[in-house]
Design a protein around this nucleic acid. Structure first.
Lengths: 250, 250
DNA sequence: AGTTTTGATTCATATTTGAGAATTATGTTG
DNA sequence: CAACATAATTCTCAAATATGAATCAAAACT
């Protein structure tokens, strides 16, 4: 399986600037990213040539240019999936005052594509691009539940549900019946299975015939108190996003 | 000189999304970027693993995630140079109603780091990350004029000024005296030397003891009519940015 | 200012990656 | 629904890159 190290490293460099939030020398970069100085030099050289980095200051310190931002902004403004889902997600966030998440399955995990954080100071906090396990998150359960029974069985035996918190369901049979319950209710939940004291609910959403998961997550005490209300808001959002031209996946 | 192809290609892929503004299949990407399909596959694989791309739609179409945007936004918000210069640049744009540009020298060219476009519909239009020649642009002239006489002479003989437009100064002696004039006046100008019917003025700016060029550019007829006024606005901006702790470069 | 230390850059070579051919999967058409 | 067409993916070896050592440049210190 091909593994383009240099690309990974180029992004590691950019991510280092994102984390450090300041100009960095080649030396610092090579240390932060665990890249040999000579290799780091050639990567930086390429990034400067493409105008993603520029040299600021005497000591040849480096910092990214606006280019990355402008590219990201143009791309974001034309994301059809997000454009379609955002209004309903914002409404859902405002109705529940909890964090709303859009996620999608990759091979063996979930990626967050959009996160609208709750206005509360104590809230479920995450970032687009974060990845989570399939078996311990509510969006993950959406995805597992959408698999044909045979495939799901096979997947479970190859990927036995490992503990993430003390509350994670680590028994395959228990997970299967949890999924079945979710299918019946039309909503998948986690209670402290991925993060202690976090309860989250998710429903499947179909866009362009592709499956996504829409979730509401927050501190267990706030969610559990008004579980039915939150569940209804989520189902309403799901309903408003239903595509007429295709059947749901579940 | 090392040339990390795979990194260049990874960014070529992202830039393709920026240009096309839609989801693309692997095949399309490999055609747009002139990358063999198998190679493109491994690059995309890496970008998906890092959550910079996600698969949208049945036919395995791809689109970038928000990750790029969020990273760019965080980085942009902490750019010390821009933070320092932006207020004066905005003021200058509002005072002149023309496009204001911040540029910096790389080895053999100028990179635009920031562009605040004029509110007029006919305006000088450019993007951060664009690169321009040294000898035909006003910011380039700032940079050349800051070189020690010997180095400048040597540079000119190795890089004879080639024509960009019909108006480009292609005679080294003429360019030298044009630079000298700029040094005397404290402002460097181009009139149709890089783009026909565009007049631009630039002054050198020093940040962290590093040289930048600040320019105002617009249609020649609009600028020439009020050259002195524009010049004064630019000099005012330069003055307001003067650092007390170090001498100018010129 | 001379000396030392630190960081940037270059270079030759072992290692890894990239490209074409073959294979598999998916969607399309008769 | 079968056969075709198109795209995605895997695999292997030639070719390009990554690396450590050496060199060069610039700060920091005495």
């Amino acid at each position: 399986m091909s593994d383009t190290t240099s690309v990974e490293r180029a992004f590691a460099i950019l991510e280092t600037f994102e984390r450090e939030k300041r100009a960095l020398s080649l030396k610092e970069l090579s240390e932060f990213c665990r890249i040999p100085a000579s290799t780091c030099h050639s990567l930086v050289h390429t990034l400067v040539r493409r105008a993603y980095l520029y040299q600021t200051g005497r000591r040849k310190e480096l910092y990214p240019t606006r280019r990355l931002y402008d590219m990201g902004a143009t791309i974001l403004a034309h994301d059809e999936v997000l454009l379609r889902l955002l209004p309903a997600m914002e409404e859902l966030r405002d109705a529940t005052r909890e964090t709303v998440i859009l996620g999608k399955r990759r091979k063996e995990d979930i990626v967050y594509l959009e996160v609208l954080e709750s206005p509360e100071v104590i809230r479920y906090s995450a970032r687009p691009g974060d990845t989570k396990p399939l078996h311990s998150t509510c969006i993950g359960k959406c995805m597992l539940a959408a698999m044909p029974a045979n495939d799901l069985g096979a997947w479970l035996s190859e990927h036995p549900p490992y503990p993430v918190t003390g509350g994670t369901i680590t028994d395959s049979a228990a997970l299967l019946s949890n999924l079945e319950e979710g299918r019946r209710e039309g909503v998948f939940t986690t209670r402290g299975e991925n993060v202690a004291d976090v309860t989250a609910l998710a429903v499947p959403i179909s866009v362009n015939n592709e499956l996504y998961g829409l979730a509401v997550a927050g501190p267990s005490h706030r969610i559990d108190d008004r579980f039915e209300q939150v569940r209804c808001c989520l189902k309403d959002a799901q309903q408003s996003l239903l595509e007429r031209d295709l059947a749901g996946h579940v």
